[in-house]
Amino acid sequence: MPEALVLDADAVLWSTERSALAGRHLLLLLHGYGADEHDLYPLRGYLPDAFAVASLAAPLVPPWPAPGRSWYPIDGLDGRDPSHVTRAAEAVIAWVDAHAGDAASVGLLGFSQGAAVSLQAMRLAPQRFSFAVNLSGYVTPGDLPKDAELAERRPPVFWGRGTNDDVIPGFLVEHTTQWLPERVDLSGRVYPGLTHSVSEQELDDVRIFLDKQLEERTDAPGR
Rank of each mutant, 00 (worst) to 15 (best):
Q113T: 15
F129Y: 13
L108E: 07
A116R: 00
A103R: 11
N134V: 00
F111N: 04
S83R: 12
A98W: 15
L77E: 14
V92G: 02
N134T: 01
S118A: 15
A103Q: 12
Q120N: 07
F111H: 09
Q113M: 10
A91C: 05
F111C: 04
I93P: 03
S105Q: 11
A91W: 11
Q113F: 12
V92W: 00
N134F: 00
D81F: 00
R87C: 02
V85K: 02
A103I: 13
A88Q: 03
I93C: 09
L108H: 09
D81A: 05
G137V: 11
G107S: 15
A104L: 11
V106H: 04
L109F: 06
D81P: 03
V85N: 02
A116G: 14
A94D: 14
Y72V: 10
A98V: 15
R128N: 09
S136R: 02
L109T: 14
V106P: 10
A104F: 00
R123A: 04
F131C: 09
F131A: 04
S136H: 07
V92F: 02
G101T: 08
A98D: 13
S70K: 06
D75V: 01
A132W: 00
D97V: 11
A125Y: 10
G110C: 04
R80A: 07
A104N: 15
P73Y: 01
V133P: 04
A125T: 09
G137A: 10
